[in-house]
Nucleic acid binder design. Structure first.
Lengths: 213, 213
DNA sequence: AGCCAAAGATTGCGGCTACATTACATGCAG
DNA sequence: CTGCATGTAATGTAGCCGCAATCTTTGGCT
């Protein structure tokens, strides 16, 4: 059945991966980024609903459709109440399955993200957008990282090593004033955009962002 | 039937309101704050799916379960593709309906919509059609997948690995700039069709789709 | 208060590299 | 056999970013 299903999905250009066991599915769900999980109840290494319960226990947000031969009302109720989002009993029409998958995929896992606000600055870590007084200001990658790092702790000192680590991950970035140069360029842009915040140096320690004097 | 359903819900301490017409339901959905909307297709003043379409058009996020005597596969597919979240054919067991309502409620409001809209772009994941300013533009499979993936997160950065995974599932597609080539071809088509959105590169990270400057 | 050394600020320059684009080859489908 | 889709590779290009030279500021010390 899996083969037939994969074939039908492939024909419609729906990308799908297939594994046979709960253990494998668990790994895939953890590692991969899938729009929907289709799950059979009877599996070689156990009951599919246990995986549903386990995933939901871990707050895994992936929509799950349970697919099974156990079609009684009680089974369906159990399936849905275990945390699945839909439940389809065999035999089923492939078109209906596809439509239900689309419905689940449409909905997707919803992640709400947060802005970092301070003064008239607004940083969106999800999109790397920075707004100054409501208008978008472009910052190149490294400058953005510096500014985001500072915005995570407004009014607080961020040490020089912290900043370097935030911007350069692991690459050894020794011997140069590259960081200072970035700060300088950021300041110029902030000034141009009339930001109400400023970046101040703390001698021998690092930098901080705060309301403009 | 409405009376029986209300009675069953009331007995389980589920709060529910009931109206008879699409017009009334529209008002209620607009004004009230409901966890789930249960909708019949045949209604005194029209087809229930029209209300679904109208609500989704307005980005109304309420989960919708369509309940109807029209139980053929085609009807179910239509129901789900109109933007509903679940579809249950009569006759049904009250317990199953309740379980499905719980599943919908658990998941909470959605922005589910048949189309992914952004700018003057409109993507229909069900048919793989892409409209630019209302007119259909043909995209080959790979290009479509890239664009759909970007449209799922407008204004958000989609990492290069994410895009590769979305387009190539498992087949490791390393060592080539195939993705870049697709992006380039998509851009050309979008330009030709006068789209109001553009695809921007985020150096070392990935791409994002956003309103044209 | 004045001086000096060290830290920080600023800026032009140039190289590097990721990205963009195009042409071409391959392969599959009708 | 023809046409389109798509991967590959070659080439072009922009702009980021590090460097270093120079200027400014700071704070400690006498």
């Amino acid at each position: 059945m899996a083969r037939a299903l994969l074939e039908a999905l492939r024909r419609r250009d729906v990308l799908a991966d297939h594994v046979r066991t709960i253990a494998d599915a668990d790994v895939m769900a953890r590692v991969g980024s899938y729009d929907v999980l289709v799950l059979d109840r009877r599996l070689p290494d156990g009951e599919g609903l246990d995986l549903v319960a386990a995933l939901r226990q871990r707050k895994h947000p992936v929509p799950i459709l349970v697919l099974t031969a156990l079609g009684s009302v009680d089974h369906r109720v159990d399936g849905l109440d275990s945390g699945a989002d839909d439940y389809l009993a065999k035999p089923f029409a492939i078109e209906e399955l596809l439509a239900r998958l689309r419905a689940l995929q449409r909905r997707g896992p919803t992640v709400s993200d947060r802005y970092l606000n301070f003064g008239n600055l607004s940083v969106d870590p999800a999109t790397n957008d920075i707004f100054v007084g409501g208008s978008l200001v472009e910052f190149p990658r490294r400058e953005y990282l510096v500014l985001e790092t500072l915005m995570r702790r407004p009014n607080r000192i961020v040490t020089r090593p912290s900043l370097v680590e935030a911007v350069y991950a692991f690459e050894d970035e020794i011997g140069s004033n590259a960081l200072d140069a970035h700060i300088s360029r950021i300041r110029k842009k902030l000034l141009l955009a009339e930001a109400t915040v400023e970046i101040r140096a703390v001698r021998n320690i690092g930098y901080l962002i705060r309301a403009k004097a």
